[in-house]
């Protein structure tokens, strides 16, 4: 009985990643897009027409990372203009920073001034979050679980998901916010003691994403409360989530991709 456990333990070895910022995702991973202009008008229109979520506009040519589902279709149709890099650092404090234009810088801007004063002071050393899925398809939910797993081990920094909103400092919402879930989400959010964080994880949560046009959503909750962090992704990669929270808390700094690599 003990021998079988010893065998598992021996093969398991050491799994945790000592330096999370040292990890490089494979080339195929679709992170921050790089747009090389000028995109010809006809091509831009074709791309905008095919975008499954309306994340592209033709004139001027923009890509809204808060809507993008990272399907890669635009990059496949116009590889000379759009490439999805493996830069996973996508989270930001303001929605506008997710709207990318031709010749965008090689990082997603993160404006420290937008971070509320209390966040570094109160939550800088320990942050407990309550997750609410409101129409999420269970992929971002699984990735949030994975960020706490034996490889990523995010709780080493004092950051954890908790069962009760009463024990939490903020809410992480996933999913496009369905009408049927709107009430439960608001009750949960209001059960978190103030000051509280509101974090949107995944393209669905940020803009409704694929489901933005669906009459089955009710996103009015988001008009009433301030969002502290937007984390794009379909689903959000654990490293994107970890980087986003750590940058929000002031532990990581958002540097250009050329330096970060």
């Amino acid at each position: 009985m003990l021998i079988s456990k010893w065998k598992v333990w021996r093969s398991h070895g050491r799994q945790f990643i000592p330096d999370l910022q040292g990890v490089r995702l494979p080339e195929t991973f679709r992170g921050r897009p790089q747009i090389e202009g000028p995109v010809p008008k006809l091509l831009a229109e074709e791309l905008a027409q095919w975008c499954p979520v309306g994340a592209l506009t033709a004139e001027p040519f923009t890509l809204d990372l808060g809507r993008c589902v990272f399907c890669n279709e635009c990059a496949m149709r116009a590889p000379q203009h759009i490439t999805f890099t493996s830069d996973y650092r996508l989270a930001t404090t303001h929605r506008d920073a997710l709207i990318l234009r031709e010749g965008n810088p090689d990082f997603i801007a993160f404006d420290e001034d937008q971070v509320r004063d209390c966040i570094h002071r109160l939550f800088g050393r320990a942050l407990k979050l309550r997750e609410v899925s409101a129409g999420g398809d269970n992929s971002t939910e699984m990735e949030l679980n994975a960020s706490m797993n034996v490889n990523f081990d995010f709780s080493r920094f004092g950051i954890d998901f908790v069962a009760s909103p009463r024990h939490a400092d903020g809410v992480v919402m996933t999913g496009p916010l369905t009408e049927n879930m709107a009430r439960a989400l608001e009750i949960c959010y209001n059960s978190v003691p103030a000051p509280r964080l509101l974090i949107l994880a995944g393209s669905d949560a940020i803009s409704g994403g694929l489901f933005a046009e669906s009459p089955a959503l009710d996103r009015r909750f988001l008009d009433r409360y301030r969002v502290d962090l937007y984390i794009p992704g379909n689903p959000v990669h654990p490293l994107t989530f970890i980087d986003g929270i750590m940058t929000l808390l002031g532990h990581y700094e958002r540097t250009p991709w050329s330096e970060f690599q």
Binding site: W50, P52, V53, C71, E73, S133, A134, G135, G136, G175, P176, T178, E179, N180, M181, A184, L210, F211, E213, S214, P215, A216, L217
Partner: peptide, 20 residues
């Protein structure tokens, strides 16, 4: 159940974009 209802079937027939 029903909290997760997003109207997928309706969105499917409302779009002609097969990528979508």
């Amino acid at each position: 159940l029903g909290y997760q209802h997003r109207g997928v079937e309706r969105l499917m027939r409302e779009t002609e974009n097969r990528l979508r």
